[in-house]
């Protein structure tokens, strides 16, 4: 891919951007390292070590052990006593599925430095990759008791709970995240999704509120608009819904679907999307609530 990235400075900027924006793109990272940056490592200066770490993790992600070994040995030469490099070594054991070795190293790191958050998180992933979700949850809740402001960890815990279908606990995690950044439409959308999945009239009502807020914060959030449409249609067809609210819901669903068709109309696939929307509407309404 990315034929235009042939100059090492462009690649450096791109990788930096990916590091900051939190993109996974592991295969591309490894490719770019091999094609361009490996020959210009000396020019990177201090940033080079960050790049090496990034490439190392990306290489593990693609199971490209040659590149991973190269990065690790370079880092090890430069920082022989670093706990961070030791953690990377543990990650490599993890990638080659030697979980006991990895756990030993991580325990050693934590013993040396009790505040080493990253190593504690790696312990969670070791349990997770072995399929021991309950243990992973326990480890992660212990971790969160110490590091309560770690958004990444709350998100992970939320996903773990969702995989166990513990919706209430998962919702609690997202509530925590929403406290951290109340204007992030994605957290609001996530909370609404969990509530929508839980089902029941009260939960639908909560979901609708949060979908609305997400759509308000980002009017281009298609997923929130779809969610808004679906929840309001569901609410309108619910027998518990008073007639006043029924009208409101129908109005809201119409507004959401209008909004969606406008959004998709601004893209090219006008015909296609309008058909899908119509189909979705038919599918969801089913009964005579709207007609």
């Amino acid at each position: 891919m990315e034929k235009q990235y042939t100059h090492w400075e462009d690649v450096r900027d791109l990788l930096r951007n990916w590091r900051e924006e939190n993109c996974r793109q592991s295969e591309d990272v490894v490719d770019m390292w091999n094609d361009v940056l490996a020959n210009h490592f000396g020019k990177l200066g201090d940033e080079g070590w960050l790049v090496l770490e990034q490439v190392f993790i990306a290489a593990l992600d693609c199971h490209n052990m040659e590149v991973a070994n190269f990065c690790l040995s370079k880092l090890n030469q430069e920082f022989p006593d670093s706990l961070r490099v030791k953690r990377l070594k543990a990650m490599k054991y993890e990638a080659s599925e030697k979980y006991d070795h990895a756990l030993d190293i991580l325990d050693l790191i934590i013993k040396k430095d009790e505040t080493n958050a990253a190593s504690r998180k790696r312990k969670v992933t070791i349990y997770k990759s072995q399929g021991m979700i309950i243990e992973a949850i326990k480890e992660l809740t212990d971790y969160l008791r110490i590091f309560m402001a770690d958004q990444e960890a709350w998100m992970e815990l939320c996903d773990l709970y969702i995989s166990q279908q513990e919706w209430n606990k998962a919702a609690f995690c997202v509530e925590e995240l929403m406290l951290h950044s109340p204007f992030n439409h994605l957290y609001l959308q996530r909370y609404a999704e969990i509530k929508y999945t839980q089902g029941g009239y009260e939960n639908l009502e909560v979901a609708r509120t949060y979908y609305s807020q997400a759509a308000k914060l980002n009017p281009k959030n298609v997923r929130a608009l779809y969610g808004l449409m679906l929840t309001s249609v569901h609410m309108a067809s619910n027998s518990k819904c008073p007639s006043q609210k029924k009208k409101e819901s129908i109005k809201l669903s119409e507004w959401a679907s209008n909004q969606l068709s406008q959004l998709q109309g601004s893209n090219d696939s006008k015909l296609f999307s309008s058909q899908i929307l119509e189909g979705l509407g038919n599918l969801q309404i089913g009964n005579d609530s709207k007609n």
């Binding site: 939190n22 992600d61 693609c62 199971h63 992933t125 204007f183 994605l186 959308q189 997923r223």
Partner: peptide, 28 residues
Amino acid sequence: LQKKTWKNLNNRPSFYTFNHRGHIFNPI
């Protein structure tokens, strides 16, 4: 925040697991 996508927000580098299908796509 509007520019953020769920794909990047939901990507958590410190919780990567490596026993996924990635190695199947790797020729070596």
